[in-house]
Design a protein around this nucleic acid. Structure first.
Lengths: 103, 103
DNA sequence: CATACGTTTAGACAAGTATCTAAGGGAGCT
DNA sequence: AGCTCCCTTAGATACTTGTCTAAACGTATG
């Protein structure tokens, strides 16, 4: 995973409101946008902005059906990020386990 | 892990320069401050600032010997962060594995 | 003691971004 | 077609924060 993508994901995870949205989506596949608007204390516009960043980091996928939008966590992106974190920090001076070469 | 601490760690990991410093420290226990100054293209003051944030997030521990400072990664904090990430996002609607109760 | 060296702190500045309001689009309903 | 509903985009604003310079601090050493 290249630095740019790695940092994009890290930043996406680093805002509390945005993470709360992500956490809510993680609880329910195909989570409707309306649910997020109802449960978060920020405006629809801001939520839309955060959703765009989460989608940009590929932490979620978006689906549109009629007027409504639905969002689903992409667990493989999260797993890739965690693997990369370990690869970069926990491989230390000891030889790195080369099984995760670039998820 | 409470939200504040979780977010503190996430933010500490989200800046490229700061992460580069952390990654350098991860490669060498007791990494001297001077090494960071030499290898990074930012001023000593900024490095000191980043080190303070990393230490604040308990991602590193600091040691002082004479004039020089030495820093070491705290892998347990990283592991706790990763466990919390999984707990919050990957436990989904399925019953959460309750073995990691609050690392 | 004075000086030099490594580091930290203070203060300032600029860039990024989270947020809001207001306006724009698209999809369904009447 | 017109209206309403859900969502996105545009533009503005305020706050956060990464960065620098300059000054201060602590520790050795001449």
């Amino acid at each position: 995973m290249d630095d740019t993508r790695f940092n994009l994901i890290a930043k996406a995870l680093a805002d509390p409101q945005r993470f709360a949205i992500l956490q809510r989506i993680a609880q329910q596949d195909d989570c409707p946008c309306m649910a997020l608007v109802d449960e978060c204390s920020i405006t629809q516009a801001t939520i839309s902005h955060h959703l765009k960043e989460l989608a940009g980091a590929e932490l979620i996928s978006a689906r549109r059906e009629g007027k409504c939008g639905y969002f689903t966590l992409k667990p493989e992106t999260l797993a890739a990020y965690q693997a990369e974190l370990s690869r970069r920090l926990l491989s230390g001076s000891e030889a790195v386990a080369p099984k995760g070469r670039s998820v």
